[in-house]
Design a protein around this nucleic acid. Structure first.
Lengths: 123, 123
DNA sequence: ATATTATTTAAGTATTTGCTTAAATAATTA
DNA sequence: TAATTATTTAAGCAAATACTTAAATAATAT
């Protein structure tokens, strides 16, 4: 049997609680998907990578390792996670793999890039 | 001395690399701040809490525990993290604490809520 | 005062994350 | 073919995360 979970405070609005459960059910898939994107962007290194791709169009792992002063494998592993979810894609040119944003999946982050630029430190 | 980090591929555009480093420097604070917000929203439970607050205005930990079928301490700990960063705030009414979004800090997430609603499953 | 209710805090733990180093692919060049 | 360069993959590990249960606060009601 289902665990007895119910808000016991007098003011608890049972209709509201039901409405909330329903809302979550209806939007469940979107929430799962979007939380994955946010979790990826919620890492400083990955957000920097995404931001740079938004600014520059495309860059290779070697570039990122250089710019961010991190090891190439560390970069590569961050990149893989974002590629797995379809946030970024790659194009090969000889030995070099150029990565770029997949515009479709980045709608959620458009705001983020804008917000970052808006908060730019005025030097 | 600084570690020798430089992209060695022939095509490496040193000007581009310098520009990238500069861009990151200028936007450093914003990136750190925003990545914190995204990391918080990048957890399914917390995204559900934020989404519900956006829909309903305010709710108490007890409500969330009920709706999300999770323990009250688990909810409380998620709430604390979001409160610490200023994403949400609380109002006391008797024993009950009502939480709500701090609009200012949620600009970044406005898009997210819209996107979730847009992707709603058409039943 | 004591009991009840709502919530937080703390301690413990299994899982996940983000790096490291070493080894494996893949493409180019000598 | 062998050597070099760009990248990925794998294994290992320390730190962070998200829960659990138990105990501590806080407000209300008896």
């Amino acid at each position: 049997m289902a665990p007895e979970l119910s808000c016991t405070r007098a003011e608890a609005d049972q209709k509201q609680l039901m409405r909330c459960r329903e809302t979550l059910g209806t939007n469940s898939e979107a929430i799962v998907e979007i939380s994955k994107v946010l979790a990826l962007a919620g890492n400083e290194t990955r957000l920097r990578i995404l931001f740079l791709l938004n600014e520059e169009g495309e860059l290779c792992p070697c570039d990122f390792a250089d710019i961010l002063e991190m090891s190439v494998p560390a970069i590569s592993q961050h990149i893989r996670k974002m590629k797995d979810v379809g946030l970024i894609t790659s194009r090969r040119e000889g030995q070099t793999l150029y990565y770029s944003l997949v515009q479709n999946h980045n709608e959620v982050l458009e705001n983020v890039f804008t917000k970052i630029q808006k908060n730019k430190k005025v030097a």
